[in-house]
Amino acid sequence: MKKLSVKTIVATGIGAALFFVLGRFVAIPSGVPDTNISVQYGLLGFIATVFGPVAGLLAGLIGHFFIDFSFGWGVWWSWVITSAFVGLATGLITSKLKVDEGEFAGKDIVWFIISSVIVHFVAWGLVAPVLDILIYSEPANKVFLQGLVSAGVNSITTAIVGTLLCVAYAHTIPKKGSLKEED
């Protein structure tokens, strides 16, 4: 593996800190027990898109690990791994987007939204429940229902919040030779 740049490392650390704070203190209940509207996945989608799959994977892994940790209920590995998967997969699918060069409009937005929806459905509809069954032997119908609800909620959250963040960030990056003082 190629050496990680310092910026990726810092982005991972700050990304994980943000993921933790949003997930731990800003959860908005969605109505179904154990499933919150998790704003942090919008953030994760954004981090993965801007800084790539490795930062996405690690920010999801570390951030979610810390959330579980801080609740003291032990580490719920199946979901931690799923968060890491979301970061990795989003980073891979969106690697052709150039948000960090200030480009994010039209087709890019559609691509980002579609890939977030796919990633979340694979993650929560498949990866998380299967891991739950393998690791914790939980009943299949419970975990699949929980998974599908999460997939729905998280993909909406990511689509809205992630897109807003990417658009805002892309705007902050001035294009080459674009800054001119006006009278």
Binding site: H171, T172, I173, P174, L179, E181, E182, D183
Partner: peptide, 11 residues
């Protein structure tokens, strides 16, 4: 700031 009115704040 009038000269910069169309700049992003980040600059």
């Amino acid at each position: 700031l009038w000269k910069f009115r169309n700049w992003p704040i980040s600059a």
